[in-house]
Design a protein around this nucleic acid. Sequence first.
DNA 1: CGAGCCGTTGAGGGGATTCAAGCTCAGTGG
DNA 2: CCACTGAGCTTGAATCCCCTCAACGGCTCG
Lengths: 246, 246
Amino acid sequence: MASRMAVMPIDRAGTRHPQAEACARCAVRSQSLFGALDEAGLDRIHTRIEGLDMAPDETLYARGGDGSALYTIRTGVVRFERSTARGDRRIVRLAGRGDLIGLEALLQRPHADDAIACTPLQLCRIPRVLLDELGQDEAALTRALMQRWQDALDQSEAWVADLATGPARRRVLRLLLRLTELTEPGQPIWLPRREDIGAMLDMAIESASRFVSQLRREGLLSITGPRSARVDRVALLQAIEAQDRS
Amino acid sequence: MASRMAVMPIDRAGTRHPQAEACARCAVRSQSLFGALDEAGLDRIHTRIEGLDMAPDETLYARGGDGSALYTIRTGVVRFERSTARGDRRIVRLAGRGDLIGLEALLQRPHADDAIACTPLQLCRIPRVLLDELGQDEAALTRALMQRWQDALDQSEAWVADLATGPARRRVLRLLLRLTELTEPGQPIWLPRREDIGAMLDMAIESASRFVSQLRREGLLSITGPRSARVDRVALLQAIEAQDRS
DNA sequence: CGAGCCGTTGAGGGGATTCAAGCTCAGTGG
DNA sequence: CCACTGAGCTTGAATCCCCTCAACGGCTCG
């Protein structure tokens, strides 16, 4: 018995590995990739998952790079950018808490977009080979992965329908709605720079500024700091409805 | 030996099942879902796959419906629509030859979009339960499914970057480029009704008409019938480049 | 042949862009 | 201490692109 203990990793003697603790306590676990795994399953993988933080505007990965890892977002917002044939960039999707990003790495494909931190991030880095190994026998994991893919597809199609459709004011309103979904209820939202709003909604930064200011005057939006604001969710939904009726 | 033959399905005695022949000869098989399966694998599944045809504007499935099947497109073009909060509809993606659509059925989720035939279609209908069973042991199939999901995601993000960005003329040009990709080289492309172009590119039908006519006068596009046209691919690429430079 | 759908084209107006100026704020150095 | 600078944001004015409204032609079909 004592000898069995002796061959275990030194940091497992008595207490669990710190990352195992982190995974077990992780608040996003139920909605995250390994939610389907039990404690034993977690113990098998935790040593190879690495928690890391990133600052706003840092790049997780670049388009074209062949990634060796995926990331689960524990807190924060990530944007996916592509640069068009002209020099200008276009933001095609946002991801937030609980989302698994960089899925194309599992298929040995190069990354389709630049992935860039919008807010300070807390991430879990999951090596691709880890999922390759688990994928052999964990049907639940396979299913969870497919759900992630479908979630991303849903988001992308909703982006076309909601954020790339209609007059500029409508698009700004729907962007604010999406931003509230990426934030804990009651918390201030991440408010993008005007240039980023332009890259999301395909409008000039002056237009973005005009509508943000307009909504501020209407009392629907109040800015609480740089890159931070509060929205009156009820008024926002009313405004969207009014916009769609007219 | 003879007794073994006797217990086989009656239509397998001597010749193979007609659908088995169809699957084995299928030109899109190499790029389709079951490309990874060998002849024996095909034999196991072919009786439950049903070939079917659809006419333009027929609906494969509707948003909200919980699908019992997926479809492989053998020939033709399918569009995915959502209706926005206002009554108007928005086409968010196109699919063509070799694409597998309705993936969300595998997750017991309701369909995210309406799927509607643009051209005459030849489809293979794949029951959901069939993939559930195969999924148990076919790792190659799992991988193929994930690739389908990533393909769809790529298409959707490219839609945002290419077809929902920039001035109207640019969007029409890029739509034509996308339509050539959905057609065999040399064949005339499917040219949508002006109203559909509007729903794809978020523009008025008059604007769609104006740019189509403009491109026709420029010799870049020639209409060969209703819903059918030929494009000068070289001129098209030049026009896109010129558009992006200005 | 009239009705209806689809496509085309023109005229006018409105919304978004472009061009331009001025503002706040943080960082820098005289 | 304060001018200087540059980045980000805001606002105004002029322009232009696209939408709306409208009229018309071709075509199919009852």
